[in-house]
Design a protein around this nucleic acid. Structure first.
Lengths: 154, 154
DNA sequence: GGATATTGATCAGTATGCTGACTATCAGTA
DNA sequence: TACTGATAGTCAGCATACTGATCAATATCC
């Protein structure tokens, strides 16, 4: 009988569970209230001002139906602005507010600290190797989930 | 600016996302309707007949509040029985039904196939190494989530 | 023995994530 | 231009996961 510890799926879930807990704890210690998903969305909008929700979803590999709620909450917190696009009336253009920019800047140390903590059982070399293997597995499996990673359009 | 691909948290989320999608697809192809969590719970109850919900939660590192709903659905599907414990009237004893046992037996090939598919981008050696590193990181971070792994009591 | 603390289970509330459906709009084509 | 298909966003519904609270029952301590 295969043990849970031999199941990559189980290990993936467990590692992610710890990663989220660490992220939330570090961010809260820093005095902020942002989830990992909200942070990723915020940082990606800042790096790609004016992008629409589908493009955002592709860049961070979320489902587009999940994005709706995430953006709702970022708008609610006044970190993001959602405007109708002038070129395509179906689309919404996303922009980070000044407060969003401030939040991003101040929260970065906590986010980086979280990344270190979740790898604290590994040497630097092992951490690198873990990330390399995850990237490789993810690349091979990209099309297997409903929300694959998509490059931004030029 | 750190890229998403350098964030273990992001990579963890993405790998888990793919793992869940692969699991559900394989299980559905085999004609079953079970989530990864439901499968893990079912297999663990079978291996530890009569265990209570808190012990089950510890063995697979779920939050106890999540277990309630998972067991609800397994009972609903007639795969698990939930009985009041005679030794401790607060606790519920869990038992796999005959149908649960049949389901577990028939679903195993699909589950194992899913584990292979989610590692398909890696060589056998790399897959082993990925699992080793995940196990190591998880062990070090075990206490950081609200639902740590707990050994069964003797 | 009785007050106190702890524990097993559940619940309300919130946030991902997914499936599938729907509307509005856009793009391509006959 | 009218038709067809594709696309952006949203919504309803379901299943994890979590926080914090509550209730009942058990343990512990004085």
């Amino acid at each position: 009988m295969k043990d849970n510890n031999d199941m990559p799926g189980h290990l993936a879930r467990r590692f992610q569970q710890i990663a989220v807990a660490v992220f939330l704890a570090e961010v809260e210690d820093a005095g902020f209230d942002l989830t990992p998903v909200q942070y990723a969305a915020l940082a990606t909008i800042k790096a790609n001002p004016g992008l629409d929700q589908v493009t955002l979803a592709g860049l961070i590999a979320y489902d587009r139906t999940t994005i709706t709620g995430v953006i709702d909450r970022l708008v609610q917190k006044s970190l993001v602005e959602r405007r109708a696009s002038s070129r395509d009336r179906r689309a919404r253009e996303l922009e980070v507010t000044d407060e969003g920019r401030r939040t991003l800047r101040k929260i970065t140390p906590a986010v980086e600290s979280a990344q270190r903590i979740m790898l604290r059982g590994l040497s630097a070399k092992e951490g690198e190797e873990l990330m390399r293997l995850l990237r490789k597995a993810i690349t091979a499996g990209n099309e297997l989930s409903r929300a694959p990673l998509r490059e931004a359009q030029a």
